[in-house]
Computed example of a mutant assay.
Amino acid sequence: MRKLILALTMLAGPAFAQAPAMPYTYPVTVGTSSALIIGVNPTRRRIEFYNSSDTAKIAVCPTISRTATPTITCTVNGAGSITLLPYQSYRVDGVGQVPRVNTAWNAIASVAGAPLTVMEWE
């Protein structure tokens, strides 16, 4: 019986320090002009966008392009943009040996004051 109690006590052990909860969550209000919603993060491995609006369409896009045009202008239903309908989400995962999604992102909405939640994992 003593061994059982000792084993259970060892399993309980000291409380481990709490790390910040993953994902890191950022509530953002998006307007009708393309604007930065999250900056560069060289340790970001995944990013997800969630449109929590009842009515607004929200487009997100990275701030840079690997094509001849160095920047992307975010537009709802536009080229280079990912348009989210109400209550829709979109996740981007890093790929390769060291997966990264480190670029900054812009957003624009079809109506002013649209709520967007940005989540990132490091």
Rank of each mutant, 00 (worst) to 15 (best):
S33F: 09
Q88M: 10
P20S: 07
K57L: 15
Y50N: 06
V60Y: 01
W105A: 02
R100I: 07
M10V: 15
T67P: 02
L11D: 11
Y26D: 00
V95T: 13
N102H: 11
Y90W: 10
V76H: 06
V111H: 04
L116C: 06
A104H: 09
S81G: 03
I64R: 13
T73A: 11
T83Q: 06
I64H: 10
S89V: 02
L36G: 12
T103Y: 08
T103E: 08
R66L: 11
L8D: 11
V92I: 15
A109S: 14
P27C: 06
I38W: 00
G113L: 12
Y50Q: 14
W121N: 09
R66H: 10
I47W: 00
P99H: 08
I82Y: 07
E120P: 02
T83L: 05
S65Y: 01
V76R: 03
I58W: 01
L116K: 01
N41I: 00
L116W: 06
T73F: 00
Y50D: 13
A21P: 04
I5A: 15
M10A: 15
P23C: 04
T103V: 13
V98R: 05
S52T: 13
F16I: 09
N102E: 13
Q88E: 10
N51Q: 08
A68E: 08
G113M: 04
S34Y: 02
I47R: 09
S33I: 00
I82T: 14
S34E: 05
I5N: 11
N51L: 08
L6E: 14
R2W: 14
G31N: 05
Y26A: 05
T71A: 13
R66S: 12
L8K: 03
C74E: 02
K57I: 01
T71V: 12
G39K: 11
R45P: 06
